[in-house]
Amino acid sequence: MEPGTHDLRVLIGRQRLCDVLFEGLGAFMLLMSLFILAALFINLAIEGLARLQPDFFLDFPSRRAGQAGILSAWVGSVLVMLVTAAAALPVGVAAGIWLEEYAPKNWLTDVVEINVTNLAGVPSIIYGLLALGLLVHQFRLGESILTAGLTLGMMILPVVIVSTREAIRAVPQTIREAAYGLGASRWRVTRDHVLPYSVAGILTGVIIGLSRAIGETAPIITIGALTFIAFLPPAPVSAVPPFINFEWLSSPFTVLPIQMFNWISRPDPAFQSNAAAAGLVLVILTLFMNAMAIWLRYRARKRIKW
């Protein structure tokens, strides 16, 4: 028997209800994710906000929770990030340029591409093992700022390469053709046209990579840098000649996530509010860096109209 109009209405109504129910479920799942993010932040704030005094940033770690601070940790993080950026930025950008602008279609390009994809999926702790075997023991760089910076640099290399490629790919072919048409060489086209137009995209990738590196703990523990550090590395700049020195590169160090991990593992609850405060600093730092990256990308998209 043919279904009557009434039956159809009932059927459609039922399906509509399912639609609405699912929309509610989807919205609920989204809200839940946002709620979890908020819970994480609020939990850290409740536990740690009281500890976030100026002294906290100016004190060394201590056996007494109330007097402990993150001075050596944040200085270490800044110095390690300098090395990481100095290592990953030139190599990553250059590799990205080669893959987009120079790479011929042959097996070598395929090998490089497969490697970049593969490296992006390697767990961070494996980079720690690589650094332990190669940098610490083979090259005898020790458990130093240089080792940590290079380790994290290798880890974020795929992020920098991929974002460089995406940024370069967004530059229209017509611009290259115009430059070639005026007789520019390949490197000139790349240096004077392709690179300047893709700076924003590249920067976005570098910032996201660094925001990942600054919170990374596992590889740093693996190279054996979980020690009590109550001193600062030698200053990179000084008032007397030669003004700049590189002794800090081989100095022992600690970084923010390591300091936080150290405090979490202690049974004394007083240290846990220190951990929460350090976590709060870390989360705010990474959120800030991510927001900056999103803003940069948004601005670049809006400003440039090809």
């Binding site: 993010l37 703990t217 976590g279 991510n290």
Partner: peptide, 11 residues
């Protein structure tokens, strides 16, 4: 959510 440092997630 995937940008938050893992040590913070551990806490």
């Amino acid at each position: 959510l995937s940008g938050v440092p893992t040590v913070v997630f551990g806490y």
